[in-house]
Write a protein that binds this DNA or RNA. Structure first.
Lengths: 341, 341
DNA sequence: TTGAAAGCGCTAACAT
DNA sequence: ATGTTAGCGCTTTCAA
């Protein structure tokens, strides 16, 4: 059925089929410049029946503009990042910009590679997770000559614009809430990722807040790999076996927190009376648990939206200067697993 | 610090800085052709100190090859698709191909748009979820002149290559297992998505298998939006209130199944004695639940890998012909929620 | 309102 | 081993 051409169609094909110059065809297809209704229709008809698909490679080279925004994130499995992406997509909706995703697997070297690849497509902007990058990566970002928005984290120096929350502050707030609720023997459960700077900063904030009240983290445990839910379960069991007198467990993410929650419920342990729990992120998933896990919202979609808006505004020329900073407020949700006093 | 050039560097800049012709610079940067070690080093040094980033737009136009594989999926929030993507990435690792993701939000119209956008970048191949597309989308796929792999589903006609499982068969297998286990009053809980063809096919397979034993679905309920876990909880409660004599609940995905499982456990209902449960997908998440939910593995990563391999093989010229078909075997996991007889 | 010419930054193909 | 020439398929700019 289909005319099995080997060669993809070009503007010239549409031009010939419609008897209109390539230039005018181009104008019609881009809705640019004045074209009479008559020719417009002839061109569109020809393009449609031929099945013409424009070549953006050529268009981008000629126009020197690529309407792509590179979004560089550590992972797609973490829930958090697809939500950030939703925010980006939502904000870019209605502009001519489109997001393109790159994944680093939490590796700085891979981040550097992915960034280099992205930049070689000459995108209109870059949104990149985190403030910590390799030296060459930072240099690339600085030299790129396009809007750069570092997201998620505001504790540190940004190359250009910055949107996120202070994870140190988030940890501190949680530490204060835990202390105020009367918990004193606190265990920490997290990921074995020295490069997860945001988790590290939360931990720092937490320990500092507790230290202010003369409390030290009583036990800690880290995991890597596997199902976060079951790891949360296992780690909780291990930790409570080792340190049965703990009265609070702080998890570096909601998923392991949920695992711990399910385990403790099975054991018939009183939450939040005998032991309190908190996670981090505020993932929607938690809504379906038997108890609402205390958590702190990381403002994922908002971050994506704000970051994309910065790029869109600068791209459209509406905003000239760079270096925007937006620090969002992490919101504490007590849920059912953190006493209020 | 950084030389704040407005204009991005070109090959010519590197050429001038190194005193080597553009062509030779190009060869060095691409590791193509014979270049003496001496010039190679001079060029690399120049490129590095200048901070040159190649322009792939220009390169792609000149070479008529774009090493991108478009991957078009309904959603990133569904867990399933990030896992498919991992498979794709894994298989493309080591080749020069790179995945680029497009998301359709389960809308055929958006799929058509995303596909058009992707094709206009002239990718080396397309991996697209599902066999159902709009007429124009199908036409584009047919005319594209590149390898196309439709994934996830094998029940229907593919444009070119096809990798997936038969969801009708998956539903049928589950129906048989349910019947063999002795369950007779079966409820179905799913998503309110007329366009989720795979869920529909599983449902068809299930009902057909049960019909073969003279059993009809006794009750059904559908949801849309919200947290799947809590929806599973709510729907389960609603359904059992309405139809208390059900002895089995089949959920169209694991997440709502997990919600139902948690709810029933809270109610102290005997699983799988009083009531049996099964979901679909085999998501890793389930490992951490109090009981292992019966499910059926949808072979997500394998599908991504196999699809990407087809594209890579054809792209490298190792394989000439198209139309490959790979039907994977959905594996039933009884878990703890489906009796064995 | 339409068309013609020039060139975006690179690489294939051909010299040398 | 290195250089030269001629485009890739569009869009920008200028002319008609």
């Amino acid at each position: 059925m289909n005319s099995s051409n080997k060669r993809p169609l070009t503007l010239r094909d549409v031009s010939e089929a419609s008897g209109v110059s390539e230039m005018t065809v181009s104008r019609v297809l881009r809705n640019k410049g004045d074209v009479s209704q008559a020719t417009r229709e002839r061109v569109q008809e020809a393009a449609r029946t031929l099945g013409y698909v424009p070549n953006k490679i050529a268009g981008a080279l000629a126009s020197q503009r690529v309407n792509l925004v590179g979004v560089i994130i550590p992972s797609l499995k973490n829930m958090v990042f697809p939500e950030v992406l939703s925010g980006v997509s939502a904000a870019l909706e209605g502009t001519e910009l489109q997001p393109v995703v790159g994944v680093t697997d939490y590796s700085p070297e891979k981040e550097e590679k992915v960034l280099f690849e992205m930049l070689s497509w000459r995108p209109s902007g870059i949104i990149i997770a985190g403030l910590e990058h390799t030296e060459p990566a930072r240099a690339m970002l600085e030299r790129a000559g396009i809007p750069i928005v570092e997201i998620m984290d505001t504790d540190g120096d940004a190359v250009d614009a910055n949107v996120g929350i202070s994870h140190r502050r988030a940890g501190r707030l949680m530490g204060e809430a835990i202390h105020e609720a009367g918990y004193r023997k606190i265990g920490f459960l997290g990921t074995k990722m020295p490069l997860d700077h945001r988790a590290r900063k939360r931990f720092e904030g937490l320990t500092r807040a507790l230290a202010g009240h003369g409390i030290e983290i009583a036990d800690q445990e880290f995991y890597s790999g596997g199902s976060a839910l079951s790891k949360g379960r296992e780690m909780t069991q291990a930790m409570l076996t080792r340190s049965p007198d703990l009265d609070f467990l702080y998890y570096s993410n909601d998923m392991i927190g949920a695992g711990g929650l399910l385990y403790l419920q099975e054991q018939g342990i009183d939450i939040p009376g005998r032991i309190g729990l908190a996670g981090f992120n505020g993932v929607e998933l938690l809504d379906g648990l038997p108890l609402q896990l205390a958590t702190m919202d990381a403002c994922r979609a908002e971050i994506g939206e704000a970051a994309a808006r910065i790029i869109a505004d600068r791209n459209s020329g509406a905003v000239k200067e760079g270096g925007q900073r937006i620090e969002l407020e992490p919101k504490l949700a007590y849920g059912d697993t953190l006493r209020r006093d």
